[in-house]
């Protein structure tokens, strides 16, 4: 078991080295970024402890996948498997629990810790025998796959919008929109096998345009329940709500282009940083979008002619 954690540490170190990042500086930067965001959330959002706890627990979702659980269960004895799951969940929720503790939110600390242990007991090695229906069936595949994989997280976004109405806090609703679109951006982090691009009888430019159009339409659908709900209850702030939806859709389009600009590699950390900077300073998109589009076109030219 000790060797397993040694291996995990090595994997992280190798990932950072591949991205040409200094492990020490990266860890410091991530810690500072995490603390900054946490502080901002607690300062500006009234239901921050609740949202923060949900974020903490949703960060664990990647650790409980069927493949991973089967691998661990098949490799280790049952008690060791449980211990590994508890430790891994613990490592992930520890920073969140620490920050909640710093803010004297003892009930939430207890809730997060207990829930993370309970989640480590859930195997999720079941096979889903029915497909979750999606409104995106005619246009594969990012939104269909992403929607099914992230349905609980997407419901969280909707839940935040409802919560904002219940507690009459508009900021939570906007945060819900941001969470929803952030989840959608993640749909584009996976690079499909080259075969699934090659099969399209299209030129690179029309393929990318098609993808952008699909992304925009689906992005609109996915944000619609939240924006409609918020617009109904906060009609005086409808422009503000629409602006966030518009921004969310724009970033979906940017993610699409960025994905194919580096395809078949997945978007790496440096490119991710570039996208994050553009989120903090949206006018940068005027330069970024044409640059990424041209790069994508060139990048796909050997697969689509």
């Amino acid at each position: 078991m000790y060797y397993y954690f040694q291996i995990q540490f090595k994997r992280l170190y190798r990932l950072l080295k591949e991205e040409k990042l200094n492990p020490v500086y990266t860890i410091i930067a991530v810690a500072v970024f995490f603390l900054g965001l946490s502080q901002a959330l607690f300062e500006y959002v009234s239901q921050a402890p609740l949202i923060y706890s949900v974020l903490a627990l949703s960060s664990l979702s990647g650790l409980g996948t069927t493949d991973r659980n089967e691998f661990l269960k098949n490799t280790f004895t049952n008690p060791e498997f449980r211990i590994i799951r508890i430790i891994e969940n613990g490592i992930l929720v520890l920073p969140f629990a620490g920050f909640l503790l710093y803010n004297l939110e003892y009930v939430y600390v207890l809730g997060v810790v207990v829930a993370s242990v309970v989640m480590s007991m859930s195997d999720r090695t079941y096979s889903v025998v029915w497909a979750i229906p999606t409104p995106f069936y005619k246009k594969p595949f990012e939104f269909i796959v992403g929607f099914r994989k992230s349905i609980l997280a997407l419901l969280l976004g909707l839940g935040l919008a409802i919560l904002s109405i219940v507690v009459d806090n508009f900021n939570i609703g906007i945060f819900g929109i941001l969470v929803t679109y952030f989840i959608c951006l993640n749909f584009y982090s996976y690079s499909e096998p080259e075969f699934f691009v090659w099969i399209h009888a299209e030129k690179p430019a029309s393929f990318i345009w098609g993808k952008i159009k699909t992304g925009l339409v689906h992005g609109f659908y996915i944000g619609l329940p939240l924006t409609a709900l918020l617009a109904f209850f906060y009609f005086d702030k409808v422009y503000f709500i629409l602006m966030f939806q518009f921004l969310g859709m724009i970033y979906i389009a940017v993610s699409t282009i960025a994905k194919y600009a580096y395809y078949p590699s997945e978007i790496n950390t440096t490119q991710m940083v570039m996208l994050i900077i553009s989120m903090l300073f949206p006018p940068l998109l005027i330069v970024l979008i044409p640059y990424l589009f041209s790069k994508s076109k060139h990048n796909l030219s050997h697969l689509l002619t």
Partner: peptide, 14 residues
Amino acid sequence: RVTGMEYLRLMCNA
């Protein structure tokens, strides 16, 4: 990011 050798060691170790 795990080599074949590390995989075998992990499986034996487990």
